[in-house]
Design a protein around this nucleic acid. Structure first.
Length: 468
RNA sequence: GCCCCCAUCGUCUAGCGGUCUAGGACACUGGCCUUUCAAGCCAGCGGCACGGGUUCGAAUCCCGUUGGGGGCGCCA
């Protein structure tokens, strides 16, 4: 059994989308599960839209998620280069082979002319499929001269065999493409760059990719790729097409549905563990139905058989819940490190750790941190009505607290007890008012924790502030 | 227009012919716990799109209808 080699092949035209992240994740999990290789390939053949900055962002987002790759543009590998723009010579070389065999041909039509052809076919109610007979008439002597003068090269089209193709997809099952369901298609453009379906086959073939797991928006095009594998006499990889992630309204997930990029979730205080966990469960399920899973558990239990066929709607509520779960699960010291960026204040690690411990159960997104912890740093300014009963009770409390030489929960409770002795304030009112005095809020962490963290002088100070 | 994919609670899903009066999770509702809010625990609400077959038996298999998604680019 040969080594499993899978890849994630994004095009650097934007941020890492959650759909792309999930595709990367499935490939990653499978590679790690099978002790195979996970390869990162940058598909930057669209020179108009590709940008270096996006490539860097893509890689940093992937790394942040913990999806490390074994071969890629930055780390290299024996099947490089791993950027399609650097592999152009390969695409041209292999295209020439097909031309020589007569199964690919040059086309001197301008892109606009192809577009017109396409529209005419559509208008005639025909499938917009091109044939050699339609395209070759453009290859006139004058046109060739024009191309040369402009420094253009002919596009290269593949002569698609008109026969049935059967695809054995690992998630969709047997998919049959009837003869003639696709026409001839471009391999190379007149700028010399390859098209997606072509570059993909050359790369996957040459890079010895064994399994192609991707979104099912590629399913229809896979027939073209299979035809190319056959033309080169290469074995096809195992294909697995997972349905796409949809927005709440059932349409393709896009910007108008809210946050869709990994970067946005990161900025809002989502843990990579939570995103990975959530995405894994969108189109895959654990054999025992477990929902909260670490990356390690995901790798252990991952299998292609449990990939699901139907599309999934992205549910931000569940992601949010899952994030809260992972926040609670995470080692406090590690959480302190990642959470600190969200606090937007300078604090000692020691103090921040105490605060975090007190508030973590209430955290769903790390971005809630400043609001949730504000009173630890600033005295609240909430006007509280001072009743005679309250004043005398809290005066007693101050006296009791001042007597303490140890600031422990036990001692503090003792002081409460003493202050309440003979007090005319009811227990509930005593605690609620004290909470208001200290935090300015009616809700929050355990009062005793707050008092302990705030420290003796600050607590007394805040109460005195109220009394004055 | 043609081709392809999909169809279980609102959402993610379990289910791979009988063990299903369909299980779990999120959300929602109620209760318990708690001198606050969360968290936690318990309970409730809620679904096999429809119509035909096949079978002793169908959420599971087949066909059709409907609905949704995708593709047919010198985008990926």
């Amino acid at each position: 059994m040969s080594e499993v080699r899978v890849r994630f092949a994004p095009s650097p035209t934007g941020y890492l989308h959650v759909g792309g992240a999930r595709t990367a994740l499935f490939n990653y999990l499978y590679a790690r599960k099978m002790n195979g290789k996970f390869i990162l390939r940058i598909e930057d053949t669209d020179i108009e839209r590709s940008e270096k900055i996006f490539e860097e962002q893509l890689m940093s987002a992937l790394r942040w998620l913990g999806l490390d790759w074994d071969e890629g543009p930055d780390v290299g590998g024996e099947y490089g280069p791993y950027r399609q723009s650097e592999r152009v010579y390969l695409y041209q070389e292999y295209a020439q082979k097909l031309i020589d065999q007569g199964i690919a041909y040059e086309v001197y039509a301008y892109p606009e002319e192809i577009e017109q052809l396409r529209e005419r076919l559509l208008a005639e109610g025909k499938a917009p499929h091109y044939t050699r007979e339609m395209l070759e008439p453009y290859n006139t002597v004058e046109r060739k001269r024009e191309y040369e003068a402009k420094g253009l090269r002919p596009a290269v089209y593949f002569s698609m065999p008109r026969k049935d193709y059967v695809l054995h997809d690992i998630v969709k099952g047997e998919v049959i493409f009837k003869a003639g369901s696709v026409g001839d298609f471009a391999l190379l453009r007149s700028n010399g760059m390859p098209t997606y379906n072509y570059a993909c086959v050359i790369d996957d073939g040459l890079m010895k990719i064994t399994h192609v797991l991707r979104g099912d928006d590629h399913l229809s095009n896979t027939v073209k790729q299979v035809a190319l594998y056959e033309a080169f006499g290469w074995n096809t990889p195992v294909f697995g097409h997972v349905s796409m992630i949809l927005g709440p309204d059932g349409s393709k997930l896009s910007k108008r549905h809210g946050a869709t990029s990994v970067e946005e979730f990161k900025a809002r205080g989502y843990l990579p563990e939570a995103i990975v966990n959530f995405l894994a469960l969108l189109g895959w399920s654990h054999p025992e139905g477990k929902e909260i899973l670490t990356k390690f558990e995901l790798i252990e239990s991952f299998s292609l058989e449990r990939l699901v066929k139907n599309p999934a709607i992205f549910n931000p509520d569940k992601l949010r819940w899952m994030n809260a779960e992972h926040i609670r699960m995470k080692d406090l010291k590690e959480l302190t490190v990642v959470a600190k960026d969200f606090l937007k204040r300078s604090v000692s690690d020691e103090y921040f750790e105490k605060i975090l411990h007190a508030v973590r159960d209430r955290l769903e997104e790390l971005s809630q941190l400043p609001e949730l912890t504000e009173f630890f740093f600033e005295r609240p300014s909430i006007g509280i009505e001072k009743s005679v009963e309250a004043v005398e009770t809290y005066q007693m409390l101050v006296q009791e607290l001042e007597k303490l030489d140890q600031w422990t929960k036990e001692e503090i409770y003792l002081a409460f007890k003493n202050a309440m002795k003979g007090a005319r304030l009811k227990g509930k009112e005593f605690y609620m008012t004290l909470r208001l005095i200290l935090t300015g809020k009616t809700e929050g962490p355990e009062l005793i924790d707050i008092i302990e963290i705030l420290g003796k002088s600050e607590v007394i100070g805040r109460i005195k502030n109220f009394l004055s």
